[in-house]
Nucleic acid binder design. Structure first.
Lengths: 151, 151
DNA sequence: CTAACTGCAAAGTGTTTGCACTCTT
DNA sequence: AAGAGTGCAAACACTTTGCAGTTAG
């Protein structure tokens, strides 16, 4: 919704370079262009749409490279995916209202009883025209087995 | 996490039958077996895993039928999908902490500034061994354009 | 120089579709 | 009957993989 200023982009790209060095990642031309495209875009772009932007600057780039790099970025916390459970349809079997705990490592989903939470409260109303139907909270972290020091 | 009692299953299947009648959906054998399998399973099953269960009772059933019916169930509110944005990878461009509003109709995702919300509070701690890293709220409803009476 | 990265094409997933046949109503 | 639903196979979209060649450190 907000414009992104050039200074933000530059700052984020600069931090990106540092993060790559810190993580031992090569700073390739492709890598940087992809990251820059990402931070210059707004909303929640798909790999394809990022590819479309990047291709204007590196016509020979392949979609696979975009995918590989986005995955690398995610793995190193350089960007984030909108949802931990994209990829495949999953159905609810629990018909009672509840929230979810998603393990960032094994991706397993655990139900969290609704009454474990204080009701979520808005400080102000949603932007005009938006009609709220329901709201659910997603907790992210490590589940019991993934959090064990051994594993 | 909890066992599902037979009485719950029967009650839900009975309601299902009624819902189908109300919605003008044919009550086929396959349909009912699929629904029953779903409510008898626990957690967040995939279409494949439901297919596996159903196949034991109707060996000739096809995976496509399972998919078609699950979609029908979702469309009629007879069950719910775990995440509205499974399907394809989407990246965040907004690096500030924020929540999401997802339009149930057009599936568009809108960022909701973190400070619009009272912080989410737990009444008790999470089950032992779970390590919380972050938490984000997903609002669902109709967005501005989908909520217009015209559309 | 070496390990990491890229581009390509091919292979994988998970999911949908078209169509002839079969059931529910 | 008529329309809705089913099974099959083929088509799809999205993503990953293997590998030979290239580049960063």
């Amino acid at each position: 919704m907000n414009q992104i200023s050039h200074i933000d982009v530059e700052a984020r790209v600069e931090r990106f370079r540092q993060d790559c060095r810190d993580a031992g990642l090569s700073l390739t031309h492709q890598r940087e262009i992809i990251f820059r495209a990402l931070v210059e875009m707004h909303g929640h772009p798909s790999p394809e749409s990022i590819y479309g932007v990047v291709k204007r600057q590196i016509p020979a780039i392949s979609l696979a490279t975009v995918y590989k790099n986005l995955k690398t970025f995610i793995d190193h916390g350089l960007t984030r995916e909108v949802s931990l459970h994209h990829g495949a349809l999953r159905l609810e079997t629990n018909s009672a209202p509840h929230h979810h705990f998603v393990c960032v490592r094994c991706k397993e989903i655990f139900d969290i009883d609704e009454e474990l939470l204080q009701p979520v409260e808005l400080r102000r109303t949603l932007p005009d025209g938006f009609r709220l139907q329901r709201c659910s909270v997603e907790f992210q972290g490590l589940c019991r087995s993934c959090g064990k020091p051994s594993s």
